[in-house]
Write a protein that binds this DNA or RNA. Structure first.
Ligand code: MN
Ligand code: MN
Ligand code: ZN
Ligand code: ZN
Lengths: 140, 140
DNA sequence: ACGTTGATGCAACTCAATTGCATTTATTTG
DNA sequence: CAAATAAATGCAATTGAGTTGCATCAACGT
């Protein structure tokens, strides 16, 4: 998945965010990533000489606060960001072996028939599975 | 839930772990906690008994490696430990608002039918829900 | 009681996250 | 288009969880 410069600018305008060069770059990197990326991984995708890490960091925060991006996982002390595709959120798989985070197709129905105050919380929650990915299972 | 000193010693013996004072203390704290605890929270629970943080840290690792405890969540850069109750693992709810992690009753099985290499990974995975807990929903 | 081996205490280190502040720049406004 | 304004950037410093090296101590099988 990719994003044109115009699409990115429109997206930012709709969120009342200024279209700066690093911000557009972050948007492009997130759009092209097949999986959620950490701050460090975004830096690597951008190439190390480009922009200040703190700037990229704050842009990820901004995009998240604006609802353009979201944190798909906090696992292993790293926030992993992805674009918030309009549709409802899909589940993610966090590998405890290699640390990778993968997007899973929507359709994972967490059948939760729970009464009481937790019902709403659970129904609106994002689903995350933690285990060993196929690659790590093969090695073990 | 609590644990007697004898039960703790037996549990450790079965795992080939020496029964040291800080280790027994960690075991007792985990046994009494209603929710998974971070390293820092375990230190706070131990309170007056002033053990070295690194010792407590390594004990949590040891207990995890021995299968006595497990990491219920990595959220927000904190590993949260709980005793590995014999039965299969239950899901957990991670609140993005206040950061608390709560144990959910088993039976909230997220059923996903997926083909291919991911099938096994998914079936053996632990389920984690991320959202806003009832308390945080009430404030918002 | 002894000796082996694991555990402890202390200190140092890594790395993601976070923040203060002076400077620059995108966007608004005249 | 140029000035005004509020936001964003670059740089540096700080926090906090996790992690590790090493000398000393202690659990426990013999
Ligand atoms: Mn995803
Ligand atoms: Mn639990
Ligand atoms: Zn893996
Ligand atoms: Zn909460």
């Amino acid at each position: 998945m990719s994003i044109t410069d115009d699409e990115a600018r429109t997206l930012l305008r709709e969120s009342a965010l200024r279209a700066t060069a690093p911000r557009l770059a972050v948007l492009r990197v997130l759009a092209e990533a097949p999986n959620p990326l950490s701050h460090t991984e975004v830096l690597e995708c951008l190439g190390k000489t480009d922009w200040d890490p703190a700037t990229i960091y704050r842009n990820l925060i901004k995009l998240r606060d604006a609802g353009v991006a979201l944190v798909a996982s906090h696992a292993h002390g790293m926030d992993r960001y992805e674009l918030a595709h309009g549709d409802g959120h899909h589940p993610h798989f966090v590998c405890e072996g290699c640390g990778r985070v993968a997007c899973l197709p929507a359709g994972l129905t967490a059948s939760m028939s729970m009464e009481g105050p937790w019902a709403t919380s659970i129904q609106n929650a994002m689903v995350q599975l933690r285990g060993e990915c196929p690659d790590c299972l093969a090695k073990a």
